[in-house]
Design a protein around this nucleic acid. Sequence first.
DNA 1: GGAGTATGTCATCATGTGATGACATCGCAT
DNA 2: ATGCGATGTCATCACATGATGACATACTCC
Lengths: 212, 212
Amino acid sequence: MTDATPEAGAAPEAGGSAAANGGRPEPAAPRRRDAARSRDLLVRAATELFAERGFERTTIREIGDRAGVDPALIARYFGGKTQLYLAAVQMELGDTAPADLLEEDRLRGLLERFSRRGPGPTFQAAVLPGDNTEVQRAARTYLHERLVRPLQDRFTAEQADRPRLRAELAAAAFAGIVLARTSGAFGELAEADSEDLLPLLHDLLAASRPAR
Amino acid sequence: MTDATPEAGAAPEAGGSAAANGGRPEPAAPRRRDAARSRDLLVRAATELFAERGFERTTIREIGDRAGVDPALIARYFGGKTQLYLAAVQMELGDTAPADLLEEDRLRGLLERFSRRGPGPTFQAAVLPGDNTEVQRAARTYLHERLVRPLQDRFTAEQADRPRLRAELAAAAFAGIVLARTSGAFGELAEADSEDLLPLLHDLLAASRPAR
DNA sequence: GGAGTATGTCATCATGTGATGACATCGCAT
DNA sequence: ATGCGATGTCATCACATGATGACATACTCC
């Protein structure tokens, strides 16, 4: 129940407040108290910031600032920063379909998405040993479900040897590349248009299949 | 009587450590105070810890603990945690030769080295946006010199298009894989023997060359 | 052997962070 | 309209961290 729960839209609009809005869902409600909205704003801001800077280096004050919501509400609504992260990952899980990285269309979709929004909060966990076990576990589950499993299934179907290892290898390579694009460490990689990058990336990942 | 023997001053390191070391090459110095040794121990411990946990999440107290040296000496000898990191990268630079990732022997060397010691402190910076500009710059330089440049030279010599982009792509993929091995996010990748992994990794990276 | 400096140890500060609870204000049910 | 719970605001706590300086001790040089 992350967003758009019926309870949210039901009551507050009936108030007949000054600016009676017709179809617009969220025009500029001047100053309404709406827990669902606050929760949603927090999750959104958190998703962005976790994606940009990682879990540890994002502070709840930053999240509150970007969301325009008092950081104390993070504790109230989610329990703490960790639970907020878990909620963000849950939302991401709902948004994203499993993607077989070797299908060029899937790959394009992911790449464009990451170019706009940065990689999800989970990718850093793929590559960094985290100290927060809950966070780690959620991130790993996400990665395995969305990236590794589809590849592993493909390799298994293709009767490749070591399907799991190959899938993990490709996923790790993909994570490294996507993260590196936003890290600033590699200039040309960061600036490359995702359309230009796509064929190179696709060829690279395709090499995780057994040579023939 | 026979009391009051000044043995107190004689055996402060009562652990009997003198007997512990056998034919160590550097045991001789009974010097209990040795700035050069302390500096060295600190740099070593720092290199390990930065590699394991990254720059930000390594504390100077941990470094001091592992080195067996008071953390305050970090400030004295290096100026601060940042400068200690820079010194560690410098040492790494001295140790490591530039490596063309497409040469299987080079790749094997790196892989085995990382299996033993973990990736160097710089790899995380390849993949994470850091907030410390000095640290970022040092890491970027290291990566570019040791990984990207050799590949770029190779691609240029092979008259591939976009040599720089291809080199960065391969380096980023390599960083992702090497980091993922120690992150715990991918089980089979982490447990795979480097000899087993080598051919797969080599094939994957080789695909950064233009298809023919 | 003694002085003076290099080296090491310790307590403490300043800051940033996540968390918590007291209080203020809103809005709905009655 | 009014009372009471829901929502928001604020001050503050507890803790970790990097840094700093005062002090203690060992080493070197004469």
